[in-house]
Nucleic acid binder design. Sequence first.
DNA 1: AATTAATCGAGACGGTACGTCGGGTCTTATG
DNA 2: CATAAGACCCGACGTACCGTCTCGATTAATT
Lengths: 204, 204, 204, 204
Amino acid sequence: MATSQPPPRRGRGRPRTPGAEERILGAALEEYGEHGWSGFTMDGVARRAGVGKSTVYLRWQDKDSLLTDAVAISSATIGAVDTGSLRRDLEGLSENLFHYLLDPAGWASLRILIDGAGAAEPLGQFVEAVTQVHVGFVEKTVARAVARGEISDHHPADAIGELVYGSVAMQMLQLRLAGRGLDDAQIAKRVDRLVGILLGGILR
Amino acid sequence: MATSQPPPRRGRGRPRTPGAEERILGAALEEYGEHGWSGFTMDGVARRAGVGKSTVYLRWQDKDSLLTDAVAISSATIGAVDTGSLRRDLEGLSENLFHYLLDPAGWASLRILIDGAGAAEPLGQFVEAVTQVHVGFVEKTVARAVARGEISDHHPADAIGELVYGSVAMQMLQLRLAGRGLDDAQIAKRVDRLVGILLGGILR
Amino acid sequence: MATSQPPPRRGRGRPRTPGAEERILGAALEEYGEHGWSGFTMDGVARRAGVGKSTVYLRWQDKDSLLTDAVAISSATIGAVDTGSLRRDLEGLSENLFHYLLDPAGWASLRILIDGAGAAEPLGQFVEAVTQVHVGFVEKTVARAVARGEISDHHPADAIGELVYGSVAMQMLQLRLAGRGLDDAQIAKRVDRLVGILLGGILR
Amino acid sequence: MATSQPPPRRGRGRPRTPGAEERILGAALEEYGEHGWSGFTMDGVARRAGVGKSTVYLRWQDKDSLLTDAVAISSATIGAVDTGSLRRDLEGLSENLFHYLLDPAGWASLRILIDGAGAAEPLGQFVEAVTQVHVGFVEKTVARAVARGEISDHHPADAIGELVYGSVAMQMLQLRLAGRGLDDAQIAKRVDRLVGILLGGILR
DNA sequence: AATTAATCGAGACGGTACGTCGGGTCTTATG
DNA sequence: CATAAGACCCGACGTACCGTCTCGATTAATT
């Protein structure tokens, strides 16, 4: 999960300050939230965390790693859903996803993925961290639906996941560009519409 | 379309060099393609375009605006599709989209949108430039399908567009993260699968 | 006197706007007076003179030439003195010199000379213009004194001129650095002191 | 003496690299000597000193301050003279002054003073640094001569200093404008002439 | 009257340097 | 050892000016 350096612990010398890691990650998320990507500064993070730059660079090798890590931590909030019904599972998943992407940290996570996907060398661990977690959720959900006989196994879980995630992401993209948010009722409506179309096609 | 400064034209003074705009935009795309975001330099662009930095800054207020514009222009390559059949229209659109996002410039376009959507103040015109162009394509496609009686008007064009774009984008995200590309046959297969699911739900 | 380009006049075409030369030189002096050397801009001069930059560059080949010329013109104000007495001649000369260097343009003239004397290649004409004019004054003054038998011809005019000009310049340098000026009474006192030493020496 | 920023020293953090100041000042003088005022570049100085630009700007607020300081330091080379005789003291001082102004750095010092004296706000500390040092030399010299009874105290040290410095500076100005130098014999001759007039006056 | 040719104001152009800022490294004194 | 502070080298940023250039619009003298 963490890009953070595994500390070469040997018990000698001054131990790492306990709270530092968390304070830095927190500061990173706040700085990112307030100033966006440009305007997200290592000096700024260090200052806000009340920490020297070397302390930051001792734990993360560079700026990307830090933001990546900060963001990966908040990814855990999506959570799995298991209601016994494909429709309600997908609705739950979509709703969680909306909330996730409404949060600056969640959105940052997407930004980092996109950014990393354009770079020369792949990010490696972060894919494991974020992508596979989400993919896993959908696969389990679909597998249960197949087992219950709700759908045939014609339609691969991949495709369904891509449609759900992609649609929600696109909606959030448009909303954020327009500077708008969403309340719970609006989310419910969009979730309904999305799952409706999706199921109409994949039910046997 | 353009974030580029509307020149305070009054016919006085030396007119702006005709080819410059294009040369600069071209250079910007090439530089971005070769060096990625970090490594994308205004000096580099100017040098490659055979132009002074002031000439660049006379037309674009900063680095972001330039890249934004460069990328917006390459969006036009998606193009509208009108085959007389909803299925084939959506297939054509998806295929174009795959090709678009396989290209570095196309992918950059997505990256910039995501990035801009996280910033404090919205990008404004760029939304018009890129998003609405694409939205327009889908809306027209769906409208024609409704007119032909292929589908009811229950399903808003928005939702369909979000599913198509989102799904293709997500697939490309995964592929790029894995460091893989796509040949035409693979694209055709993915297009089929996507449109298959989609139509299964929206045909009357 | 003028570094200004000799216009290749042939009577055809639009003649140069009559007042332009003066307006530009005036603007140059004002700009220099207000903003000093750094802050003295060709664009600024052109704007203040209500003139296009090309009009300026049509007459002067570069920034130095312009300022040089602007300043050379105001040099004529020193003027020769011939009172029939060496003491009174030198007093008159010194007094004129004080007034000249109190004026921003006069001071600028000195600055330009000093500046040019540090450069790789000499300024050429400007030396003729400014230096020799002044040297000439002193030479004539001394020659008359020798003719009248006031002094022997042991002491070359050069040496006397250097002492007068140098002393006045040094006094002005100190005053300007201290941000102070001089009224007529103070000038008279300094002139007295200077000429007194010069004529009589300092040994008791 | 120094325009250089007084560092907010508190013993914390990495101390400023010891040799840097000197290396930078040296590089500044060399660059100035080679390329003159135009052609004197902060980047050039930093590169020659093997130092980052920020290291330079951490110590001097701008280009002027740097050159000013570089030059102030080389002023110390004039040195006081005390031979027990007014004539020989003045000769020694004049000779030193000739050598000083023959050197590019020394001449630059004069140029900077003249330049600074034309600016809107005074240079402040630099006056102390350069002017007062020199003034001090002359005052002490004259005071000793008065004590020895060589001269009366009618003639203020100021006036004598202005004559010596001014005369030497004017001679150097003419020589530099003519592109000529001076060997030791020529200097001796000029020194003799100058001090002769000063001590004895020019009246027959 | 039509043509020719120089000048004019305006302002874009290719450069170069400015002074600032941030990334990532390094060096101290203090835990 | 780790830490907080902060100086270090590097290199890009966006701005300002230089001196050149290209326009359309004057303005005479020449046809």
